[in-house]
Computed example of a mutant assay.
Amino acid sequence: MVDWPEAFGTRFTVMVDTEEEFDWRAPLSSANRSVTAIAALPEAHRRFADSGMPLTYLIDHPVATDPAALEILRHLIEDGRSAVGTQLHPWVNPPHEEEVAPHNTFVGNLPATLEAAKLDILTEAIATGVGVRPRIYRAGRYGIGPATLRLLSDRGYLIDSSMRSAYDYSAEAGPDFTAIPNHAFWCGPGNAMIELPLTTVFTGAVRSGGTSLYRTLGHIPRGRGLFARTHLMSRVALTPEDMPVADALEAIAVALGQGVRLLNFAFHSPSLVPGHTPYVRDQADLRRFHLWWDIVLTDLARRNVRPASLDDLIHASSKA
């Protein structure tokens, strides 16, 4: 595990999956390259900046090659605290040599040479378009594979955030992260990179059952829903997307009680405009989205959990 320096304290970070819009109910398509929701980023950025919160924008190929989107992002990172990183959606990222099928939407399932080619094209597009070389990476759909960390290390990436604690995508031919902790840990060749998992905790009276109990409940009709409604067990990721704020506050308390020193929050950029994701369907949902953040950021400040920028993480890890 990363042994953060004492002066680092307990911190949190917010990463934005900055991506194209698409119908979440339909099969993925390489034709989905619209990025109109990026126009909503400046207002959202201001809201976070007013709370002293830098954002890390993990951008994919449609965003990294759109002139208007790039202009917005270049302006946002002028605050000196926010940053741009990489998010690879293989179905919209050239070269397009694979069939767009569920198995191949996890980029780590592709041949390592094709994964490398896609990563090179995206990394260079970001470096050229934004003017800074990305140092943090997330695989779209959390599709990390056996070659991913080596490929990232070879290209100078310092942090990966492709793992989602307590989630299992193996039924879709993706990775199983049920054994991944919420603590940041060293990984990659020579353990020279940091893995920063998305924070997910179990809450409720029987939360100590963890992933084993949660997996068992998945085999019982409506088992997980029943346990959640009766406050016995819920799996709560730190995101405003489909996670009630009361659950998020409990999850924060549980994570801190477990000694997690760095909480990792996330959301998708299209959620900033109603109608692009199932989480924000209308203006009422958008108001709830922003209220979620107001409540959560207030709670974090009350607990003296301070925000961390990408530079803060890299600087602190160099002393760990």
Rank of each mutant, 00 (worst) to 15 (best):
W4D: 05
E6L: 13
E6R: 14
T13W: 00
D23H: 13
S34P: 00
A40K: 12
P42T: 07
R46K: 13
F48I: 10
P54K: 13
L55R: 09
T56M: 07
L58I: 10
I59T: 08
A64P: 07
P67R: 06
A69I: 08
I72W: 02
L73M: 12
R74V: 08
D79R: 11
Q87L: 14
L88F: 02
H89C: 04
W91K: 04
N93L: 05
E98H: 09
H103V: 08
H103F: 13
F106Q: 04
T113V: 11
E115H: 03
E115M: 05
K118G: 02
D120A: 11
T128C: 09
G129H: 06
R133T: 15
Y137E: 05
R138T: 13
R141M: 06
I144Q: 07
G145R: 05
S153K: 11
R155D: 06
R155L: 02
Y157E: 03
L158A: 14
R164H: 15
S165A: 15
A166W: 02
Y167R: 13
P175M: 10
F177A: 06
T178A: 03
I180H: 07
F185P: 05
G190I: 05
G190D: 11
P197V: 09
T200K: 01
T211S: 14
Y214E: 14
Y214N: 06
R215N: 10
R215I: 00
I220G: 05
R224D: 12
L226R: 12
F227I: 02
L232E: 03
S234G: 02
R235G: 10
A246M: 06
L249W: 03
F265G: 07
S269E: 04
P270C: 13
S271F: 10
G275Y: 14
G275Q: 12
P278H: 11
A284D: 15
L286W: 08
R287H: 13
I295A: 10
I295K: 14
A301W: 00
A308D: 13
I314R: 14
